[in-house]
Structure formats: structure tokens, C-alpha cells
Design a protein around this nucleic acid. Sequence first.
DNA 1: CGCAGCCTTGACAAATGTCAACAAACGTGG
DNA 2: CCACGTTTGTTGACATTTGTCAAGGCTGCG
Lengths: 232, 232
Amino acid sequence: MPDSDYRDIRTLDLFAEMADEHFTALMRGAYVQNFPAQIELITEGEPSDFLHIVLAGSVDLFSAWNDRETSMATVRPISTFILAATIKDAPYLMSARTLEKSRIVLIPSQDVRGIFDVDNNFARAIVTELAQCYRSVIKAQKDLKLRTSLERLANYLIRQQHHAGGGAEFKLDFEKRRLASVLGMTPENLSRAFKGLQPYGVKVNGTLITIEDQADLRRFAKPNPLIDDFST
Amino acid sequence: MPDSDYRDIRTLDLFAEMADEHFTALMRGAYVQNFPAQIELITEGEPSDFLHIVLAGSVDLFSAWNDRETSMATVRPISTFILAATIKDAPYLMSARTLEKSRIVLIPSQDVRGIFDVDNNFARAIVTELAQCYRSVIKAQKDLKLRTSLERLANYLIRQQHHAGGGAEFKLDFEKRRLASVLGMTPENLSRAFKGLQPYGVKVNGTLITIEDQADLRRFAKPNPLIDDFST
DNA sequence: CGCAGCCTTGACAAATGTCAACAAACGTGG
DNA sequence: CCACGTTTGTTGACATTTGTCAAGGCTGCG
């Protein structure tokens, strides 16, 4: 594994505080791989053999049932995914596929569990990470259960704008069809939802969004830190 | 605190493996209280001062936004809730109210974090607990995003039947209005959903449910361990 | 250029929510 | 134990939201 990858991983909260020797042991068993776009990395229901880390690119976590499919989340560098399944040694609840060319680290789950047992700082870092993940999903669930699709889109745009620096113009960071799935609606419905936000000053041009009057949109969207602040 | 409460708590996975002295320290600062029904124990947005444990009764976790409200989960004995907020020292994301007369233990969050820092077994138990919680919410989210309300109800009935021992007859364990909220629909819609399941042999009489042909219902509901097995 | 995939749009259908009315169940105080 | 009022559940009529299907335009790429 290249030194730069090694250092990047080491700086993740999850690994930052663990003993050198344990980190080295984990990395010895790990391997880094470059995947093209649209590769299914893991499949829901299978045993969790590897903890994954996205170093570059992006990964879609999705789930299917009865011929329907939905995007649950997008993983961007640098972060891990399916930590919970790895720790519990339980089957994956979600599938994962690369959205673009991506650089992924795979660490054998067995190694992770082994180091978890002996490294107390690592165990504590995992607690923090899982608590964070848990809270994120709770927020997503509140978003789904308490808001209409129009409200979800409006709040998504506000979050995205903030994330992109707060300027009036910004780009969507994924395909509209996937955005629709993440927001829990169909692509057709998303198209119409964008139109439904025009009265609040939202202009759409391909993936470029312009929010003409932020206050107006916020009045409609009513963003709330207990739902929308996806950092905590 | 009565000895029997003390022992009940000690047997929880979360506390079973920790050092005696740490458990005792936690319990010293804790107090047990009996609450009547319909008492709001915590309010979303407030700082997480206490880790709560339900010893008896039941507690509804719910959330509100913009004059709407939804039930997120029900906590039954013996288990804890809002562990993630306690550990992260972050505001509650959900409110909690007693559904009936309930016996609740409150442990100051500060104490929990203090013991978490020094007791490695406790830290590991927290990991297991949080991973479990995380996976449960992911399942709930898949349920919401991949199924119609009729399908959610059908699968809920199957889970509930199984949970009640598997007999053709069983009782709902909460009010229909709350069940509706948990399943993400209105009470009126739930009423109609029950009727919609009649063709699959579901009979409703108050809170008593009869499933005449389990195979028929399952054919419709298509239960799936990656969504419905709420134990893992 | 021509194909393939995505996005949009319209017409329509299905699912879900809202409002109002009423019946049934429950709890309280007499 | 009953009477009363409150809450919950049900039902119907209707509105809104969301999904489905089909068609066409646009874009990117070989």
C-alpha cells in the first residue's frame, strides 16, 4: 500500500488513536484496489468479510426488495462503510456499488474484530463512529416520515448549498435519478418537485442549481438541526 | 435502589461484562422512578443528561416537525434508550413519553461517559448495542422506502405473530393510532389497510388479530430477514 | 451519425391524506 | 353501578400526493 494511502487512513478518526502496532497489523492484511464505475462491491445478505474504506471516488449504498430498489446513502472519501456488519459479524443489510472510478481499501473483518478486542482506543473510536452513523439514519428517517417529497427536496437543496460553500449557485453532486431514490421518490416526481420549488426562487439548469432568495426557500423548507445537520 | 432492580440491570448485555466497581459507581449516581402514563421523559433538542433504562412499562420514542409528529420506536423492558446521544454528549434527536405506568432508571450521562472512558468491557458492550440499534434503524428505513403501507402492515403482523408465539390469534401490542404512526401512515389509512388484508385471511376484532392462512399472508407480504428480523 | 441513457412532460392510475360524521370503548365522578 | 364526557376507531367523500406508462428531447460517446 502506498505511503500516502497509509497516512490518509491513519488520520481517520476511526484509526487516529489506536496503537501503532495494531494499525500496522490491520494494514498488513488490508489491500487497496481501484475499481471502475458501476461495480458491485458488496451484496446485501452476504457475510461481511471486509470493512471498506473509500479513498477516492464515491460509493452508493442501496437496497432491494421485491423488484424495487432504493439508494440509502452515498459514501465519499475518506470514510468507511458497513462498520456495523463487520463488528457484529452479521450479514450486510445494504449492497454497495461504485458510482465512478474509485479507490477502495478492504480490511478483513476478522482482523478488525481481532484488533477491536485488544485495542481500547480503537473500540472507543468505533463507538463514536457508530453513534454518529446511528444518529444520521435517525435523521434520515425523520426526514422521510415527517416531510413531503417537496419539503425533502427543499431541505436537501439547502443542505447541499451550505455544503458547497453557501453561494447562490451550486452543482448537484449526483445524478438526478439517484437523488430521487435517495429522497425516496421517482425521477418523474423529482422533476416535478423541482418545478414546484420555482415559486420559491429555485432555478435548475442541468445539474446547476440557483437559489435566488435563500430566505424565501428556507421559509418554505423550515430546516431543522435535529433533522438536517448531517454532520452530527 | 431495590436489589431486584439492581440485578435486572446488571444482566443487561450492556452492563453484564463491566467491572463490579464501575457498575456500582454507575448505580450510585442513578435513581429509579415510577412514572404515570403519558409523561414526557425527554424532549428532542435538549442536552442528554441521563441514560434511561426501562425496567417496566413502555416508552414511546417520537419526533415532531412543523406540527407533524411521528412515532419512531417503542422501548420495552428491559432496555436502554438514547445511548447514542449520551455517548456523543449531543442533543436528543427524539422525544420520549411513557405509554403506561413505567419504572425508569436514570443514569447521569456524565457518569456513563466517565465509566466508558475507563472500562474497556463497557466500551465494547456499547459498540455491540449501538451496532444493533444502527442495524434496526436501517431495517426500518428499508421497510419505509421499499414497501407500501399495506405491505408494511402485513409484515408487521407477521413479525408480531411470530413474536407472540406463532399462534393464529394474537393481540396488537399497541394502540392502533400509534401503530399507524410507527408504520408511517394515518389512523384512517391503517383502518383501510386492515380491510385490505382481509382477502389474505386477516381478521381484526379490536386489538385481537386472527391470521387464518399464514402461507397466504406471507405470499403477499414477502417477509425478508434483511428487513424484518428485528432481533439482529 | 446514430445509439443509448437520462431527463422531462403529459395523461392517467393508485396510494395516501384530510375532513366530517358517527359509533364504540374507556375512564371518571357521582 | 350508571351517566357522562373524552378519546379512539371506523367509514364515506373528497383532495392531494405520488407513482406508472408512454413519448419525445437532449446529451454524450463510440
